[in-house]
Each structure stands twice: as C-alpha cells, then as structure tokens.
C-alpha cells in the first residue's frame, strides 16, 4: 500500500461527501414518501449510510452499534409497528407546514450561528479533542487493560452511564409490557371505546 497521504485524504473526503449527500437525499425522500413500507426501508438505509459515515470518522464501535441497532432493531420495530397500524400515510392539513418551517429555520439558524466559532473539523487541538478526550487516550493503557479505548471508557470512567443505559432498555421493556402485554387491552381486556366495533381487532388494515 503505497498511497500518498494527500491522495488518501482526498479519497476519504470524497467518500464522506458522497455519504453525506446520500444521507440528505434519503432523508428528503423519507420526508416526502407516503408509502410507509418504503419509508421504513429507507430509514434502514439511512442508518446503514450513517454507520458507513461513522466508520470514515473512525467511530467503528458506533458504526457497528448503529448498523445493528439503528438499521436492524429499529427497522424491525418499525416494520412490525407499520404492519399493526397502517401502510400508507394520509395527506395532512396544509396548516402545519408554515409552523414547522419556521421552527426548523430558527433551529437551523442557531446551529449555523454556532458553527461560526466551531473549531475546524478534524482539529486535534480543539478543546473537545485535546482535553478530556485526549486524557482518556493517555490514561487508558495505564489504568485499564483493554486495547479498545471506547470499551474501556464505557466500562470504567463512564460506567455509570452504561448502567443508566441498561436501565433505559429495561424501562423501555417495562413500558412496552405495560402498553401491549398482559393486562393491556389486547391482553384479554375489552376496550370500552365508543366506536369499538370496527377496530377492536386491531391488527390488519
């Protein structure tokens, strides 16, 4: 492998650019399409694309998790929810668009404003990369015998976040059980809704 650093840097930049453009196109298409199946599939693709992008940013652990969780688990969840609810999205009343647009533009403007003072992308000396982040790289080999720094930090320095994360999953499981499990209407209890006749079965569209 005798590739000049300039060339490989350029290639990486080109790949990043292509991925980001694709991400944008996919997101737009997800916004536009009313065909929920297509939207769910696109969201899987969106996750995979972002996973690829994470690899190009050296975040291999994140990429792996995003591919497994974002493209895998999320897509499965959405697919099953879609099958249990509706396949197509109906048009919305046009009144929503202006409000949404204003909110979105304000938020976008705030971020562009912030970006003026941001350190350059990839700057090793930016506060974020030089201070605590760098200290993790320094100290991990001496304090924790795990070559993967991300794993080391997850399990040790910020282990309590990881514990919280486990709790989040547990809570989500508990919430879903409360919503759909035993005791919830489909778990054997009748729904006392007014127009129950046509939707008591839930399920198919």
């Amino acid at each position: 492998m005798t590739v000049s650093p300039e060339f490989s840097a350029g290639a990486v930049a080109a790949i990043e650019l292509a991925l980001l453009t694709l991400l944008f196109v996919v997101a737009l298409q997800m916004l536009k399409s009313r065909h929920l199946f297509a939207v769910v599939m696109l969201s899987g693709i969106y996750s995979l694309l972002s996973a690829a992008f994470f690899v190009s940013l050296d975040a291999v652990d994140v990429a792996f998790t995003e591919a497994a969780v974002g493209a895998g688990v999320s897509t499965m969840l959405m697919l099953s929810a879609m099958l249990l609810t509706a396949r197509r999205e109906k048009p919305v009343t046009p009144g929503r668009a202006p409000v949404a647009l204003i909110a979105v533009l304000i938020v976008g403007a705030a971020l562009v404003y912030a970006s003026i003072d941001m350190p350059a992308f990839g700057d090793a000396n930016s506060p974020a990369n030089a201070y605590v982040g760098q200290a993790y790289v320094e100290r991990t080999p001496n304090e924790i015998a795990v070559p993967n720094i991300v794993t080391a930090v997850l399990a040790s320095y910020r282990g309590f976040d990881t514990l919280g994360e486990t709790m989040v999953i547990f809570t989500a499981g508990l919430a879903v059980m409360l919503l759909l499990g035993a005791g919830a209407p489909r778990g054997g209890r009748e729904v006392k809704d007014v127009d129950d006749a046509d939707n008591g079965k839930g399920g198919n569209t």
């Binding site: 809570t171 508990l174 059980m177 409360l178 035993a182 919830a184 778990g187």
Partner: peptide, 14 residues
C-alpha cells in the same frame, strides 16, 4: 388491570 399493578409500581420506582 390487576395484572399491570406490579409493573405499575416498577414504573413508578423507575
């Protein structure tokens, strides 16, 4: 529903 009560308390504690 009675079946949901233990889960309810779990959720309250969480």
């Amino acid at each position: 529903n009675p079946k949901q009560i233990p889960l309810f308390y779990g959720a309250m504690l969480i």
